[in-house]
Simulated assay, not measured.
Amino acid sequence: MRHIAWIAGAAAAALVAAGAITYASAENDGSPAGKVPTADSADAGFARDMAVHHEQAVEMSFVVRDRTTNKEVRLLAYDIAQTQGAQRGMLLGWLDLWGLPKVSADPPMTWMGMGGMASGEDGALMPGMATNTDMRKLGSLQGKQAEILYLQLMTDHHKGGIHMAEGCVAKCTVGAGKRLAQDMVDSQQSEIQLMADMLKERGAKPR
């Protein structure tokens, strides 16, 4: 029950934070002298890359939802899918607002000085992302086995997402973006601890 209560609270907090950040963005909050970020800025790079990163988290969450009947895992997956889906829409909306492209010819995470460090081998475009092989395996499992792999993959995914979000906190210039990034760091660190507890209950641990 403690997991369910925590998930419900996190979902409510995320909705409140999303509303506040959307309002701040609409007011062009935090951008130096009201300037729009450039296509090669940290703000734009973060928005593009995190939107891709979040897309996979949403996909994984929908996959495990159909592979288990466990209420706690399904609630966690629902929370992650809803929260990261909403954040992804916000990030892409900012790019539209700024008149910037949603894709770039530069390698992912170039804005962090890490362009080319993620090879994209087997579909893993950025650190923490699951490979195509991982995704196929997740889709082939049922019950406890699916739960364990999902929790392991999502733990890795969150660690990669936190690293990127911390990069935005340090490098982004738009206040709303920096606050969203910090919110991602805080919420995903909490979810990593939650997932570690859930793995322990299943006799497993992070990879």
Score class of each variant (00 low, 15 high):
residue 108 P to Y: 06
residue 115 G to C: 12
residue 163 H to L: 05
residue 77 A to G: 12
residue 161 G to K: 03
residue 178 K to I: 15
residue 87 Q to C: 03
residue 82 Q to V: 11
residue 152 Q to F: 02
residue 99 G to P: 08
residue 18 A to P: 01
residue 193 Q to Y: 09
residue 185 V to Y: 02
residue 111 W to D: 00
residue 153 L to K: 04
residue 39 A to C: 07
residue 180 L to V: 07
residue 15 L to S: 10
residue 206 P to D: 09
residue 80 I to K: 00
residue 201 E to L: 04
residue 23 Y to C: 10
residue 5 A to E: 15
residue 138 L to R: 01
residue 1 M to N: 14
residue 40 D to M: 04
residue 85 G to E: 07
residue 64 V to A: 08
residue 105 A to Y: 09
residue 80 I to P: 00
residue 199 L to Y: 02
residue 161 G to D: 09
residue 139 G to P: 06
residue 101 P to E: 06
residue 135 M to Q: 13
residue 38 T to P: 01
residue 39 A to P: 01
residue 121 E to V: 09
residue 152 Q to R: 14
residue 55 E to F: 05
residue 113 G to Q: 08
residue 130 A to N: 05
residue 156 D to W: 00
residue 169 V to T: 05
residue 80 I to T: 05
residue 165 A to E: 05
residue 101 P to K: 04
residue 18 A to M: 10
residue 173 T to G: 03
residue 62 F to S: 07
residue 129 M to I: 11
residue 191 E to Q: 15
residue 198 M to G: 04
residue 72 E to Y: 10
residue 100 L to M: 08
residue 26 A to E: 12
residue 176 A to F: 13
residue 106 D to W: 05
residue 138 L to A: 00
residue 39 A to Q: 12
residue 65 R to W: 14
residue 154 M to S: 00
residue 59 E to Y: 12
residue 29 D to E: 14
residue 170 A to C: 06
residue 143 G to Q: 09
residue 184 M to P: 00
residue 129 M to H: 05
residue 159 K to L: 11
residue 15 L to E: 11
residue 172 C to P: 02
residue 115 G to A: 04
residue 58 V to S: 04
residue 119 S to W: 07
residue 73 V to F: 08
residue 66 D to C: 08
residue 105 A to T: 15
residue 113 G to M: 06
residue 166 E to G: 05
residue 2 R to L: 13
residue 43 D to G: 03
residue 14 A to M: 07
residue 30 G to W: 06
residue 122 D to E: 07
residue 76 L to N: 01
residue 200 K to G: 09
residue 182 Q to S: 11
residue 64 V to P: 03
residue 60 M to N: 08
residue 166 E to N: 12
residue 86 A to K: 04
residue 81 A to R: 04
residue 59 E to Q: 14
residue 169 V to D: 01
residue 204 A to W: 12
residue 110 T to F: 07
residue 189 Q to R: 14
residue 103 V to P: 00
residue 96 D to K: 12
residue 113 G to C: 09
residue 32 P to D: 10
residue 190 S to K: 14
residue 200 K to R: 15
residue 61 S to I: 09
residue 200 K to V: 12
